[in-house]
Simulated scan of single mutants.
Amino acid sequence: MREFKPRTDLGVTLRALRRQADLSQRQLAQRSGVPQATIARIESGRTADPSFRVLERLVSAVGGRVMIFAAGAAGAARAGPTGADEARLLPAVPHEELRDAAGRHCPAHLDAREVREPRDWPGAWWAQWHDLPPQRWPAPLPAVTYVQDRSERDRRRRGERVRREVRVRRFTGGGLPATSWRFLAELPDGELVGELRAHERSVDLLLGYDLGDRRELVLDGVLVAPECRLLGIGRRLVEALRAELDHAGVATVHAVAEFGGVGFLRACGFQVEWHRPSALRLAGPVSAGRRPPR
């Protein structure tokens, strides 16, 4: 008996395509020439079998292609008709199951979330009633909310991608001294989004007598690109450093930090030993008639 696969849900697929292209129904209608009412009917399931021409125009408007493969050509579907293209699974809309108070889908190209209490609703950010019981709320809460600011959506989605794809590795070679430790946080395309640097010091040399060649690390700094902060990259860099300590026979890491850096290092397992560190500077001699640099 021949096995039939379930039919594709065109509404779900079209919503996912719109989200990937970050287009509203009105914007997709303008690009494709398909009436917005038709798009709304397809996504709501009221038009289950639109014409092939309509589908082709909609998919082309979001930068995609409609491809048809013969039965049993799974390998061709993965490699593409010329062997050069590689098909990708279309990620579904994360909030596909959410509905507004009228039971309608949320805008697919926006990032929607459910509203359960006032703190979930940006529209109530100014109100001082977040701690009141529900029966005393001065305004009803919407079922869902979403961010309409395109730049904010792009920032959040990039953050999600960076958190998902970033990889941390220890960098060696390239003229780096054996006593220098360097860890890199990179994206698959090679973009550097974070870095940790440290260096070894010998306790024997520091104290002037033999303690069995004890080695310690001094943390030079943990740097994360401004647009990638608060994504856990700094913590992952420190975790990579800690994972290398036992292997290298290093028992202690020292660090000097101020302000927010203190809280970050404490959250990563460091303990405060001294408060209010001193900053020292060594200046060279100044010849007569020259003013020292400021």
Rank of each mutant, 00 (worst) to 15 (best):
L196Y: 06
V203N: 01
L196K: 07
H199V: 08
R214V: 15
D210E: 07
L207Y: 13
I233L: 07
G208M: 10
D210C: 06
A198P: 04
R214K: 12
D220K: 06
A225S: 15
C228N: 03
Y209P: 09
L211P: 03
R236W: 04
S202M: 00
Y209M: 07
R235L: 11
A225Q: 12
L231P: 02
L230W: 12
L206W: 15
L231V: 09
D220Y: 04
V222A: 07
A225N: 00
L205A: 15
L241H: 09
D220R: 11
G208Q: 07
V218L: 15
R215D: 02
L217F: 14
L211C: 11
L230C: 12
R197M: 09
A240F: 10
L237T: 00
R235M: 10
A225F: 03
L223M: 12
Y209A: 06
V224Y: 12
G232I: 05
D213G: 15
R236Y: 00
L231N: 04
H199D: 06
G221D: 12
V222R: 05
L207N: 14
G234E: 00
L223V: 15
R229W: 03
L205G: 09
G212E: 02
P226V: 09
R201T: 05
L217Q: 01
D210G: 04
V238H: 03
E216G: 13
H199L: 07
G234V: 05
R215Q: 11
A240C: 04
E200M: 01
P226F: 02
R242Y: 14
G221L: 11
A240K: 04
E195P: 01
I233D: 01
D210Q: 13
V238C: 08
I233Q: 01
R229V: 02
A240M: 06
L205P: 05
D213F: 13
V218N: 12
G221A: 02
V222M: 05
E239A: 15
G208S: 11
D220W: 14
G232S: 08
R229P: 08
G212T: 01
I233N: 01
V238D: 01
L206V: 07
L237Q: 01
V224T: 14
R229D: 00
L230N: 14
E200D: 07
R201G: 08
P226S: 07
G221K: 11
D204K: 01
E227T: 05
G221P: 03
R236G: 05
P226W: 00
V218P: 00
E239T: 10
R197Q: 12
R201W: 09
G232Y: 06
R215T: 06
G208E: 06
A225H: 14
D204C: 04
V203E: 03
D220A: 15
L230S: 14
R201N: 06
L223F: 15
A225D: 11
L205F: 10
L205N: 08
L211V: 15
R197C: 08
V222Y: 06
E195Y: 08
L219I: 10
R197T: 13
G212A: 14
L223N: 03
R229N: 00
L196C: 12
L231I: 07
